[in-house]
C-alpha cells in the first residue's frame, strides 16, 4: 500500500492549488483538435486539456488523470470515459467535501 502520491479529485476552482501535481478532474468534454480539448468541470469552469491519447471521445463525460500546468490548464496522463449519464451535481458536491472538511480521508 502506498499513499505517498495521491491524485486528488479536484474541480476547476481548486485546480490552482495543485500546480505541477497529478489530479483527477471530471467534466463534460468538448474536442478542439487532436492535441487539445476543453472540459467543463462540475463547478462550471472551463479548463483546457492537452491530450495524450488523441482527440476522439466516445462519451460526454470524461475523467482525466492529469498534471496541472496552470490555474485553467492540465496535461492528460490517462482518461476514463464516464459515459453520457453521470450525475455531475452529486460529484461536484463530493469534490467540494474532498477538498474542504473531509480532506483528511483523501489526501
Amino acid at each position: 500500500m502506498d499513499d505517498s502520491a495521491p491524485a486528488p479529485r479536484v474541480n476547476g476552482e481548486s485546480l490552482e492549488r495543485f500546480q505541477g501535481k497529478k489530479v483527477l478532474v471530471v467534466g463534460e468534454v468538448a474536442p478542439v483538435d487532436a492535441q487539445r480539448a476543453t472540459l467543463k468541470t462540475t463547478d462550471d469552469k472551463t479548463i483546457t486539456v492537452t491530450l495524450a491519447e488523441g482527440g476522439e471521445f466516445k462519451s460526454k463525460y470524461i475523467e482525466f488523470e492529469a498534471t496541472v500546468d496552470g490555474p485553467m490548464s492540465v496535461t492528460e496522463c490517462s482518461r476514463v470515459e464516464f459515459g453520457d449519464d453521470f450525475d455531475t451535481f452529486s460529484y461536484g458536491e463530493l469534490v467540494k467535501l474532498i477538498n474542504t472538511k473531509s480532506r483528511d480521508l483523501f489526501y
Binding site: R9, Y61, E63, V80, F82, G83, D85, F86, D87, S90, Y91, L94, L97, I98, S102, L105, F106
Partner: peptide, 17 residues
C-alpha cells in the same frame, strides 16, 4: 459500469466517517 458508483462510494466513505 455506472460511474456514479464512484461518487456514491466516496460519499459513503465521508458519511460513515
Amino acid at each position: 459500469t455506472d460511474f456514479n458508483e464512484i461518487t456514491y462510494h466516496l460519499l459513503e466513505v465521508i458519511y460513515a466517517s
